[in-house]
């Protein structure tokens, strides 16, 4: 059973097709990469899957449940979580609080318990903080435990988003260019983090430009161009596909 099925999905903005009649599926436990040149519609696809945009046509099924048209927070409750290409950090909060917001769904969210800070809630909040500190260490942010998000460097913020997304305990994690703007060392570290995440059983959907990283860690790849599926398969298959080479790798080589 596929974890995620995208069926004949389309999205247009004022007559321009950002995604056109796209069908593919993601198997549980995989690291599944979406590749394609700039403007191929990768981020739009993420926005459609996670409910930030509503599709013009087609359907998205998550765990065999029709989810297109649902709000992002509803999808989060079903086990979908993501990061952003353009950071969406809560800069008005501490780093660890950013991660704690990620754990929102698993906490007592009743207004009154929050207002009165009952002992039970206080305990749960304490556990939440420890759990989130653990996640920060997991992604390599141990030294930023007490930092304000606004004071952190770019590379650290990218990891912070991953930690926040993980705090929601997702079944599927979508990462939008996690290595963009990072240097080689940082990029390798992110690479390690993604492998670690996948090894815990979380399915990872990855949009990334760093081909070395994509080819190295992906179980399966879907290649897009102009919003349409160009090719799919294992890294070796995709690399050998002449159309992909022409449209994407060729353009870069």
């Amino acid at each position: 059973m596929s974890l995620l099925k995208v069926e004949s999905l389309s999205k247009e903005f004022g007559g321009v097709h950002a995604i056109e009649n796209l069908t593919f599926s993601v198997e549980p436990g995989d690291i599944h990469s979406i590749i394609g040149p700039n403007g191929a519609g990768k981020t739009t696809l993420f926005n459609l899957i996670t409910g930030v945009y509503t599709p013009s046509a087609g359907r998205v099924l998550f765990q065999d449940r029709l989810v297109s048209g649902m709000k992002p927070y509803e999808l989060a409750a079903l086990g979908m979580s993501r990061t952003f290409q353009n950071l969406q950090i809560f800069f008005n909060m501490k780093a660890i609080e950013n991660v704690m917001v990620g754990h929102h769904l698993h906490l007592d969210r009743r207004f009154l318990s929050s207002l009165l800070r009952l002992p039970k809630m206080r305990r749960a909040d304490h556990e939440c903080r420890d759990f989130c500190a653990g996640l920060m260490e997991f992604v390599g942010l141990a030294k930023y435990l007490d930092a304000d998000a606004a004071s952190m460097p770019y590379g650290a913020l990218k990891r912070l988003e991953i930690a926040r997304a993980l705090a929601a305990k997702p079944r599927m994690l979508l990462l939008d260019e996690p290595a963009a703007g990072l240097n080689a060392t940082e990029s390798r570290e992110i690479d390690e983090v993604i492998k670690k995440v996948a090894s815990t059983g979380v399915t990872v959907v990855l949009v990334e430009h760093d081909m070395k990283m994509v080819m190295g860690i992906s179980d399966y790849i879907t290649a897009l161009d102009y919003g349409r599926k160009l090719a799919e398969g294992t890294p070796a298959e995709v690399r050998a596909n002449p159309e992909v080479v022409a449209a994407y790798l060729g353009a870069h080589a």
């Binding site: 930030v52 992002p72 989060a76 008005n92 950013n98 917001v101 705090a167 929601a168």
Partner: peptide
């Protein structure tokens, strides 16, 4: 306040 979409995708 920080980011509406950032909050939405983790279930807020």
């Amino acid at each position: 306040h920080g980011s509406e979409v950032g909050a939405e995708v983790v279930g807020v």
